[in-house]
């Protein structure tokens, strides 16, 4: 299950994502770039998943089990989220 271009989005590396300080409130701080940003509950779930799951297809399967939503909507949202995440962590 991939995007319309049949390419999985480039996920920031697990090392990069594991360095992030993530609070329960959804406040995220990158100790290398100094950037901070906030995520909502869904974003928090995706971010935590991405810290250990780097396979896009597996990630979508995990999220589809957790959320009662259209799979294509989940895919679209996750691709958008990963794009923003890449900008925030500078990859």
């Amino acid at each position: 299950m991939v995007n319309s271009n049949n390419e999985a989005p480039a996920i920031p590396s697990a090392d990069t994502l594991r360095r992030l300080a993530i609070s329960e409130s959804g406040f995220v701080f990158d100790p290398v770039s100094g950037h901070n940003f906030t995520v909502n509950d869904t974003g928090l779930t995706i971010l935590r998943s991405l810290q250990h799951e780097q396979d896009f297809t597996h990630l979508l399967q995990e999220l589809q089990q957790e959320y009662d939503a259209n799979p294509s909507d989940i895919e679209r949202d996750v691709i958008e989220f990963i794009g923003m995440l890449r900008e925030f962590v500078g990859e």
Binding site: F29, V32, S33, G34
Partner: peptide, 9 residues
Amino acid sequence: AWSGVSIFD
């Protein structure tokens, strides 16, 4: 700098 945050790179 008016404000800043400590980092390590």
